[in-house]
Nucleic acid binder design. Structure first.
Length: 532
RNA sequence: UGCAGCGUAGCUUAAAGGUAAAGCACCAAGCUCAUAACUUGGUCGAUGCGGGUUCAACUCCCGCCGCUGUAACCA
C-alpha cells in the first residue's frame, strides 16, 4: 500500500471526529493528547505532519439535544464544537485541521464519494425490517430487547416493528479482500487484542449495512433520493477526507487526496473499532482509494477502578482537571501511567503522587539543584566541558548515548509509558550521580575542574530528558530549555530553527559557556486536595 | 453459552524455561547543592487455584476460579 505514497516524509494522523451530543469528556481528551504527542514526535523526526481532529455533527441525537437546549441543531453544534476547540487549546493540542461534518464542502466530498461507490454497484435500495427503538433511533436485535420487548436503554419504550426501505452498502462483497488485507498488513489493526476481535468478527461473515434513514432530517440527503438521509457513519468517516482539503481547494476527492492521502494512523477508542477497521477500509476499496496504514484502538478509562457514567456521577471533567493541575500534568499522567492500548485508571492520589515524584522531585528538583550549584560554583554559566573527552564508561554518558534511539523506538510503537520510563532512568541516575560525586564537597576542596565536569554532565542529561519528553510535556520542556538559556518554546516553531532529533536527540549536544537564567522551580509540587 | 484476552508485592508495571525486578506508597538512616528535595537501607510476594511436561515453569500444556472485551449498525 505504501508504494503509492508520493511523499514518504509526510505523516497524517487522525483522532475520531467526536460526536457532539455532549461536552467533551475525558476519553476524547485522552485520544487527542496521545495524537498530539505522536504528531509532535513525528515533527521532531523531520516529517511533515498533519493532525486531524474535529466533530461529527449529524444524526437524530444531535437534533434532539439541540431541541432540548432550545437551539437550532447548527447553533448547538457550533456551541459544542467551540467547547472542543477550547479544550484542545487548554491542553496544548496543535491540530492542523478541525473537520466538521456539517461543513458545506464536506457535503460535496460525501456526494462525490457516494457517487463512486454507487457507480461501483455497491449501494442498493433494500428493505430493513426489525425492532426499532424510537428513543435510540436504531434497529435492535430481538435478543437485545427486554422480555416485554422494551429497549434496555429505554425501558419505558416498547420497540416498534419497522419495515422500511433503506440504502445499503454491500459490505459482504468485501469479506475476502478484507481478510486478505488483515493477512498482508498484520499491523493494520493494533494492538493485537483489537486485531483478534476484528478477525473473529469478519470471520463470522459480513452482512451489508444500512447507510440511510427515512425519519431523519439532520444530515445530508442521499444523492438522487432526498427522501432518505445518509446515516451518520457514512458521512462521519469521510470527514477525514474532507479535512485534507486546503481552505482554497475546490472540494473534490482528487484535491483532497493529493498530498496527505492515505492516512498513516487513525487513533481511536476501542468502541469504534469496527467502523474503522472493517467498514471504512471496505468503503475505500469500493471507491478505489488507497487504505490507511494503521488503526490503533486504545483502551478505556475508569475512575478509581469504576466505570465512569453520568448516573454514577463519577465523570472526570477534563476542563476541571486542566484548570486545576495544568496541561503538562494531565498529559503526563495519562501517557505515562497508562499503558497505551490497555484500559487505565484515573485516581487523583496516584495522579498527584506520580507527578510530584517524577516531574517535581526527580526532574524539576534535579535541574534546580544543579543550576543553583552552577550559579554558585561556575558563575552562572554552563561549565565548558567537552563531552567527548569524558571517560567511555561514564555512568551518565553511557545511559545518555543510547537513550535517544530507545525512546524514539518507544514513540514509534506508541509506547508512551515506555518512553517516559526510559527517560526517567537517566534522570534518576543523575540524582544518584550527584550524591555519589558530591560536587558541593569537591567545591570546598577546591577541585574546580571536577565540579564543572559533574555539573555539565548532569545539565546535559536534564536537557536531553527535557527534549525527549517534549512531545508529552511541552510546557515543562520549554521551561527547562529556557532555564538552560535557550530561547526556545516547544509550542512555537517560530522560536526554533531546528529542533530535530539529530541535533537535540542525543547526548552531548549542550554547549558550554552558555549563560542560563536565574534558577527557579520548573514544576511546582502539587498539593493533595483536602478531601480525597 | 461461543470466541478472545487478562490474573506477579497495597497500587502501576518488568522479567517471552535458568537465583522473581523497578517505580509509587509506607518506615528508618544518611546528606545538605535542591521544590520537606535527594541518596541508602528496610517492610511487603514463594507470580489466582489444582494438576502435568522439564534437571529447571511467572513463562509451555490441561482443568478450575475470578475479571474484562466481544457476539452487526454503540462516536
Amino acid at each position: 500500500m505504501n508504494d503509492t505514497r508520493t511523499q514518504p516524509n509526510t505523516f497524517a494522523l487522525t483522532t475520531p471526529l467526536y460526536y457532539v451530543n455532549g461536552l467533551p469528556h475525558i476519553g476524547s481528551a485522552y485520544t487527542t493528547i496521545a495524537a498530539d504527542a505522536i504528531a509532535r514526535f513525528q515533527k521532531l523526526r523531520g516529517r511533515s505532519v498533519l493532525l486531524i481532529t474535529g466533530t461529527d455533527e449529524h444524526g437524530q441525537k444531535i437534533q434532539r439535544s439541540a431541541i432540548d437546549a432550545g437551539r437550532s441543531p447548527q447553533e448547538r453544534c457550533d456551541e459544542i464544537a467551540g467547547k472542543f476547540q477550547d479544550l484542545w487549546q487548554q491542553l496544548g493540542i496543535q491540530y492542523d485541521r478541525f473537520s466538521r461534518t456539517t461543513a458545506p464542502r464536506h457535503e460535496a466530498i460525501v456526494k462525490e464519494f457516494f457517487g463512486r461507490v454507487w457507480d461501483r454497484g455497491d449501494i442498493y435500495l433494500g428493505q430493513q425490517t426489525g425492532w426499532y427503538c424510537v428513543a435510540c433511533e436504531e434497529f435492535k436485535e430481538k435478543r437485545d430487547l427486554l422480555e416485554g420487548g422494551q429497549c434496555p436503554l429505554h425501558p419505558n419504550q416498547t420497540a416498534e416493528w419497522r419495515d422500511e426501505r433503506n440504502y445499503f452498502f454491500a459490505l459482504s462483497k468485501y469479506q475476502e479482500r478484507l481478510e486478505d488485507l488483515y493477512q498482508k498488513q498484520p499491523d493494520f489493526i493494533q494492538p493485537e487484542i483489537r486485531r483478534n476481535e476484528v478477525l473473529s468478527f469478519v470471520k463470522g461473515g459480513l452482512q451489508d449495512f444500512s447507510i440511510s434513514r427515512v425519519n431523519l432530517d439532520w444530515g445530508f440527503p442521499v444523492p438522487g433520493d432526498p427522501d432518505h438521509t445518509l446515516y451518520v457513519w457514512f458521512d462521519a468517516l469521510l470527514g477525514y477526507v474532507t479535512a485534507l482539503l486546503d481552505s482554497t481547494d475546490e472540494p473534490t476527492l482528487e484535491n483532497a487526496i493529493a498530498r496527505w492521502w492515505p492516512i498513516n494512523l487513525h487513533l481511536i477508542g476501542k468502541d469504534i473499532l469496527r467502523f474503522h477497521a472493517v467498514y471504512w477500509p471496505a468503503m475505500l476499496m469500493s471507491a478505489d482509494l488507497p487504505l490507511p496504514d494503521r488503526v490503533f484502538g486504545h483502551g478505556f478509562l475508569t475512575k478509581n477502578g469504576q466505570k465512569m457514567s453520568k448516573t454514577l456521577g463519577n465523570i472526570v471533567d477534563p476542563v476541571e482537571l486542566v484548570e486545576k493541575y495544568g496541561s503538562d500534568a494531565v498529559r503526563y499522567y495519562f501517557l505515562k501511567e497508562i499503558e497505551f492500548g490497555k484500559d487505565g485508571d484515573f485516581n487523583e492520589t496516584r495522579f498527584i503522587n506520580i507527578l510530584n515524584a517524577d516531574l517535581a522531585n526527580d526532574l524539576g528538583n534535579l535541574l534546580n539543584r544543579t543550576l543553583k550549584m552552577a550559579q554558585k560554583y561556575c558563575g552562572g554559566k554552563v561549565p565548558k566541558v567537552n563531552p567527548e573527552e569524558l571517560e567511555c564508561e561514564h555512568p551518565l554518558k553511557t545511559i545518555g548515548l543510547c537513550l535517544g534511539e530507545r525512546v524514539a523506538a518507544a514513540y514509534e510503537s506508541l509506547a508512551f509509558h515506555q518512553a517516559c520510563e526510559e527517560t526517567l532512568i537517566l534522570v534518576r541516575s543523575c540524582n544518584k550521580f550527584l550524591d555519589d560525586r558530591a560536587p558541593w564537597t569537591l567545591y570546598k576542596k577546591g577541585e574546580q575542574q571536577a565540579v564543572e565536569e559533574v555539573l555539565y554532565v548532569v545539565l546535559e542529561s536534564v536537557r536531553l530528558a527535557a527534549y525527549l519528553l517534549c512531545a508529552i510535556v511541552p510546557g515543562l520542556s520549554t521551561a527547562i530549555y529556557q532555564q538552560l538559556g535557550f530561547e526556545i518554546d516547544f509550542d512555537d516553531p517560530s522560536t526554533w530553527k531546528d529542533l530535530s532529533f539529530d541535533l537535540h536527540g542525543s547526548w552531548g549536544k549542550l554547549d558550554g559557556d552558555r549563560t542560563f537564567s536565574k534558577p527557579s522551580p520548573v514544576f511546582a509540587r502539587l498539593e493533595m486536595p483536602e478531601t480525597p
